[in-house]
Design a protein around this nucleic acid. Structure first.
Lengths: 344, 344
DNA sequence: TGCCACGATGGAACCGCTTCCACGCATGGT
DNA sequence: ACCATGCGTGGAAGCGGTTCCATCGTGGCA
């Protein structure tokens, strides 16, 4: 049996459909006795408003599309937590578009991101093209970006360059001077640029401390633990072997840890490893890392989107970074000059 | 500017709305010249059908609600991958309802799971009450359960009892006779029963091998790494100390690993640890575990739901289990009797 | 040549809600 | 006593599709 309609409720209560609708939407223009009668009828018929009909009528779907590269980054999941919690709390539904290929992102954006299917868009680590951004604007669909910026769209980001500097400072302070880097391919199909920016900051800080970044210690590979592990194995075979490694994300850092173990190189005694992101796995692998507030970034972005949906003009936000010291970094072995650090 | 409507397309092409609709839906009853003219107009106006209007008209939303305890189980995420991939592939949208509290599950089910908002429901590790199941049935909303069963609903599950037996067999075969257990509280608010069933199978197999399960070696605690770690710390202080531990999920097993490390107990030499699920973290912690196909379970359930939505009658599915040996289990220390195992 | 059947097409009705407009009926001011 | 005022209410229009039914040609057949 199909659910009751508003007309049936109206008839049952002996009122007009308009009155039932007013009761449903909490309009004050309904007398108390009438309201009660309508509510009784609603209960008697076990009536639930058809949200699709409401959406068609109001032009608001109360749904937000979330575009996320679900499968390439574990940090995405933590962001999603913050997103769903906030959005659900604000009465919005979360329509999840998992993206595995870059083309899929375009396709989802093109066919789904239209007025009349969802009210707003949240992109995690992904950015619309200029044309897509223009279309969203034309359709008056607000969009907020996480972990990615765009000249015309508000975003929630971190300062990747500064994060790279922080990692470098930590290692320099510990006395390391020969430091390897493992990061993402810098022209990946999704256009992720975090890794490249972290490397830039990292190398800039090294250079500022008088340590020239050596290309032979820089390894770029596809995002993923296995590839990072393979790259790190090569890195550890370098001569002289670096005393520390900065991996541009925790997933890769864990790959480095694995490679070190496989090569019989003890961490942190013979090799310091520092990652980035502070995903949950960093906790139980004892990884020192540059932490960014993942879940909160999702929550903040969702909050921004909710306000944009309410008509507010919102501006981009920067999330703070923090060094989290665990057990994968230690002072460089004896002989390292200037253990007190090279910077204030 | 709002998007074009079907009426505008019809006018532009000089045809009726019915014809445009037929073109959109691939009806064969449109002559080739007309079809071409309509397609041209669609392109010229950059027209996209309003999916909400279509949903209202057809009664099908092409959206599936996914109810998942997003935050308590990391394995959920891997299941979600399979779910979204399959559902998206079949043309359905995925509406994600993250559940943190048991009441939320009820509430989401009650207010959202109605004809006219989504066509079907997928529940991960959660089950509707009998009343809710009856309501879904009445509303003709198909539902499929993952990792949970229900007398009236199709489900995709594993044999938790057998999984527990497999874990026991592995440890027994290695010669262990004093074996601890760490699992979930068995009357948790969500009603998760996997842990209890795994324990049952585990203890039954021990008993069958003549090893009486000792209550002092059985620790039940809230799901989560930290709690498991605390429980394992106690377990490791037992006298005599067990030579092996079965944790009812990998998250808890990792907690056990941490506790062992903190206590200076080496794994696997002094302590064997076996987990359950084979989540990604099991891979890089070297954890031996009973593997279940997580992502595939999601895909299979989604497949089942898609077929149910097409009107097919679907039946429950059981997923296979497999022992994955890594580096956290080893033969019991010398002196252990009957290393060849107690079972065929 | 006339009729029928059928393919192609236009358009009204309908899906279930919101919203706006019009109306009835007290109330209060003059 | 009369007329604004305004509250409470009923109901039609409209949201943008789909679908069914009626209509219009036109070719095939008697």
């Amino acid at each position: 049996m199909r659910g009751a309609t508003i007309a049936e409720v109206a008839q049952h209560a002996g009122v007009g459909v308009g009155t039932v609708s007013r009761v449903l939407n909490g309009s004050p223009a309904v007398s108390e006795p009438t309201r009660r009668r309508v509510l009784d009828s609603i209960a008697a018929l076990d009536y639930r408003p058809n949200l699709v009909a409401r959406a068609l009528s109001t032009g608001r779907t109360m749904a937000v599309g979330v575009l996320a590269p679900f499968f390439t980054q574990p940090s995405v999941v933590e962001r999603l937590r913050g997103v769903t919690r906030t959005l659900t709390g604000a009465g919005y539904e979360v329509v999840l578009f998992g993206v595995e290929l870059p083309e899929q992102a375009r396709e989802r954006l093109a066919t789904r991101a239209q007025r009349g299917r969802m009210d707003g868009i949240l992109c995690v680590s992904l950015a619309p093209s200029d044309a897509e951004a223009a279309r969203l604007e034309a359709a008056r669909i607000p969009a907020v970006l996480i972990d990615r910026d765009h000249p015309r769209l508000p975003s929630v980001t971190i300062d990747d360059v500064e994060g790279g500097r922080m990692a470098a400072r930590h290692l320099l302070r510990l006395g390391h001077r020969c430091i390897g880097f493992v990061g993402d391919l810098e022209d990946n199909p999704f256009g992720f640029a975090s890794s490249a920016r972290r490397r830039e900051g990292f190398e800039a800080e090294l250079a500022a401390a008088g340590v020239t970044p050596e290309p032979r210690l820089r390894f770029l590979c596809p995002h993923g633990r296995a590839d990072a592990r393979a790259a790190a194995a090569e890195l550890l075979a370098a001569d002289p072997r670096p005393t520390a490694v900065f991996a541009s994300c925790d997933v890769q850092a864990i790959g480095v840890l694995e490679a070190a173990q496989a090569a019989g190189v003890t961490v942190p005694d013979e090799l310091s490893v520092i990652g980035f992101d502070n995903v949950e796995a960093a906790g139980f692998t004892g990884l020192t890392t540059i932490a960014q507030p993942l879940e909160e970034s999702g929550a903040v972005a969702a909050e921004l989107l909710v306000r944009a949906l309410a008509g507010e003009v919102v501006t981009s936000r920067r999330m703070p970074l923090a060094l989290v010291e665990r057990h994968s970094t230690a002072p460089a072995a004896v002989g390292a000059e200037d253990v007190l650090g090279t910077r204030g």
